[in-house]
Design a binder for these strands. Structure first.
Lengths: 193, 193
DNA sequence: GTCTATAACGAGATAGAC
DNA sequence: GTCTATCTCGTTATAGAC
């Protein structure tokens, strides 16, 4: 396995810092000391903190998109796809992180414009993907939707984000899993009135 | 109506700043300029930012607790109490704020110990109150719980926090309301399988 | 209780050598 | 591509006059 290049290592460290401490909770000095290079070197790769922030979101969103494509390619049925979607969030919690875009959603007001736009796109894409899965499940009879697919999709995103947000300070992985299971259980055929 | 004293005005401004920008997203200078006093004066009332942070959470939690007591005192049935609980969150969103403790949950890793403990207490109290309402509703037949009361209580807190978190950047009040309605609808008698 | 003045530090950022 | 050195600014915080 080849060594990772410097921009990648910077992004790895910065991404983890944003997901654990927030965009306003870390500095170039934090990355610098962990990576073992000077702050000036960081500016060579990413002109400023705003550009670094954009790059972090873009890479995260790309990886997320690729993961969703993998799930689609697996050919699994809709309920299984939803479980795999929730599993992405569970993996984030196991690393004791917050969802990158959930963290940035909290700090939204303080962020530069390009970062804001990337955050909104992330949520829009997640919901679009989920809505398609939900519609397919409804049409094939593997899911029962109590409401419109796009609203059910939003409720799933909201529930997973909130479960992550609250579970992390409480150090309660089980809490996340219980909430996630409830979110999906209400879409099982036979669960609705 | 009497003028508010200085500590109260400081807390009002600081609370709003934390709820909109986060604890790491505002400074004494922000409060100073809005209140029209110097930064030094703020230190007379609150020794440091950590003490101010504690005071903000304590006052917020006291007010929240008082509101829950009001709801209890109203004598309303369990479903109505849940709606009033969700309405607290809706009011926060209408002011374009995040739940104070939801915001601080995101920043948890960077906060001083006393603030962390106050945040955990807040969530514990919310869940205890909700669990009692849920149990009463189940016993009186006005609610149907798909799972243990304490887990259902957590799912409600998680769902409302997440709905607030995501709805605010998207500027989508309807989104919050739709998710909140779904959270409560699944507890209606006849909704379960 | 509020002020002026300032200390002490860390932040993001840049110039220019190597 | 990384370094040293430096800059400028904002941050929390304190001393001491009024």
């Amino acid at each position: 396995m080849a060594e990772q290049d410097t921009p990648t290592r910077i992004l790895d460290i910065a991404e983890r810092l944003v997901q654990t401490r927030g965009y306003n909770g870390f500095s170039y000095a934090d990355i610098s000391s962990e990576l073992g290079v000077t702050k000036a070197s960081l500016h060579y790769h990413f002109a400023g903190k705003a550009e670094l922030g954009e790059a972090i979101i873009e890479r995260y969103a790309d990886r997320f998109r690729a993961r969703l494509a993998e799930i689609d390619a697996s050919g699994a049925d809709a309920p299984t796809r939803l479980e795999e979607y929730a599993e992405i969030y569970a993996g984030v919690l196991r690393e004791q992180r917050m969802c990158l875009c959930g963290m940035l959603a909290a700090e939204y007001e303080t962020l530069p414009g390009p970062m804001r736009e990337a955050i909104v796109r992330f949520f829009d894409e997640s919901e679009t993907w989920l809505a398609h899965v939900l519609e397919e499940g409804r049409d094939s009879g593997s899911l029962s939707l109590p409401g419109p697919a796009n609203e059910e999709a939003r409720a799933i995103v909201d529930g997973l984000e909130g479960a992550l947000l609250v579970a992390r300070p409480l150090g309660d992985v089980h809490r996340f899993e219980a909430t996630a299971a409830r979110l999906l259980a209400r879409l099982s055929p036979g669960a609705a009135a």
